[in-house]
């Protein structure tokens, strides 16, 4: 088992674990953060698969901007829900 395969297996376990956490958790905030974590692990996996362009895009857009979009909407819904 080479180092590359070992790292890929580690990343696979981590991203699947984060995906399971996103599905079973009760709190939506934790779910959003775990989905961002799935994207982050996937972007490292893209790097292993010799796709640095895709890795950059996934890290910047998939795990960065998407998470913030969720938090903006979540913040607005919370504020209106408590009124």
């Amino acid at each position: 088992m080479t180092l590359l395969t070992f790292m890929a297996a580690l990343l696979a376990v981590a991203s699947l674990g984060a995906a399971v956490i996103a599905l079973v958790t009760r709190s939506t905030v934790v779910a959003v953060l775990s989905a961002g974590l799935v994207s982050l692990f996937a972007s490292v996996m893209f790097l292993l698969l010799a796709a640095p362009d895709v890795a950059m895009t996934e890290a910047a857009i998939g795990s960065g901007l998407t998470t913030f979009l969720f938090f903006f909407v979540l913040g607005r819904i919370r504020r209106e829900g408590t009124k």
Binding site: A35, S39, A42, E58, F70
Partner: peptide, 17 residues
């Protein structure tokens, strides 16, 4: 609905991988 959208983004990442 928000949790459904979170799940869709996970499926989206899977398709890309």
């Amino acid at each position: 609905i928000l949790r459904m959208i979170v799940s869709f983004t996970i499926a989206d990442t899977g398709v890309n991988v």
